[in-house]
Design a protein around this nucleic acid. Structure first.
Lengths: 197, 197
DNA sequence: ATTAAAGAGAACAAAATGTTCGTTACAATA
DNA sequence: TATTGTAACGAACATTTTGTTCTCTTTAAT
């Protein structure tokens, strides 16, 4: 099914196409009904691929979901990592280009319809995935810093607090139809996070 | 199916039993496999009720889930509401009996196995439900208070931030095998929340 | 003791799952 | 360009799950 070359996975152009078609169909369906109600039949009908083809790519619906998550967040997190290398987490209070602002802007652009998935009926799954990625990102940046709360509160707790708050904020933003700009949101976030950094 | 008396629902003792049996079986199954993999057949086998009986109580598996959530959190939130009436949200910084500490202690006691559900594979569903209940509770307490952030950050944002942070903390606590006492956790939470109140 | 309702259990159609074929179409090589 | 491997097709299939419809029995409330 998959060919390996120099350690990286090379995909047949056909595979890429069907994979993309399945992802797209699945994403669209998630906007229409809850995850548990979506059937493989619906997916392959919309994606216009054969039944066998689907099962050749994904063992189950759950696997498809997982693969979609990985696809989605690896991009957004990678670009945030890039950003954090040059600017750091929140070292200087006045940095206009924080990771968080960067992430929010990235979300606003909404490539590959992350927002659609984060606001669909079954968004909890994506939220958890998003948060897990975020935790890793923040942790890698965090232990570099010395924080005054060092003894009072464990660093692990703080990493979770920051990631969790951010994800919950994004959810709040989306549910409120995204009336605020990324910059406004970033300002809110700094207000509640910087006092504890 | 259901009899009404003075506006409240009165249940036949038989109904109560089967309902309880179904809830219990469902809860146990959620600890063993993911929600999407659980079948109605498994539930009725474990609960030892007939197929017809199940569908007389719940239209779908999703409805059962929803009913379970409502059952779970109405108790825990009601007792927290009680507590908040006497002590307020976080008015005085040294109150040993905050809503949050109360909630954590309540969770620690773990009646009706809330912790099991919050740590099972499909816990996202319960988390959202928990957070929604919490948001309402905090909102009802919050707008009574005057907070210094009044202009800088919307109250709505703060309510979401507090509820969200709390839920994320509980999740972190459970995932870390609950090594901290409710009092320790409450202390952590105050450290990150009181600066923004 | 009477009555109304709930559960058991079997049987059923319809839908969804997951697998196995042989055949066709295409993509990456030489 | 010809060759070769393999992805996709599609039809057919057994199996599982769903949701409904019966009849009959048991139980709770009064």
């Amino acid at each position: 099914m998959k060919l390996f070359k120099n350690g990286v996975i090379i995909m047949d152009r056909r595979q890429q196409k069907t994979r993309a078609a399945i992802f797209q169909a699945f994403t669209a369906l998630l906007g229409e009904e809850s995850y548990s109600r979506i059937t493989v039949q619906e997916i392959i009908d919309r994606a216009n691929v054969g039944r066998t083809t689907f099962y050749a790519h994904f063992e189950t619906k759950d696997e498809l979901l997982k693969a979609l998550c990985e696809n989605l967040f690896c991009h957004i997190i990678a670009s945030a990592e890039d950003c954090s290398h040059t600017h750091g987490l929140y070292c200087d209070g006045s940095a206009p280009e924080s990771i968080f602002c960067h992430l929010l802007q990235h979300l606003k652009e909404n490539d590959s319809n992350v927002l659609g998935l984060l606001s669909c009926e079954s968004n909890e799954i994506f939220l958890r995935f998003f948060k897990d990625s975020l935790c890793e990102l923040i942790r890698s940046q965090f232990d570099m810093q010395k924080h005054p709360f060092g003894r009072k509160v464990p660093a692990d707790f703080l990493v979770n607090h920051i990631s969790g708050s951010f994800v919950e904020m994004v959810l709040w933003w989306i549910r409120g139809r995204m009336k605020q700009t990324p910059e406004e949101l970033d300002c809110y976030f700094r207000s509640v996070i910087e006092p504890v950094l």
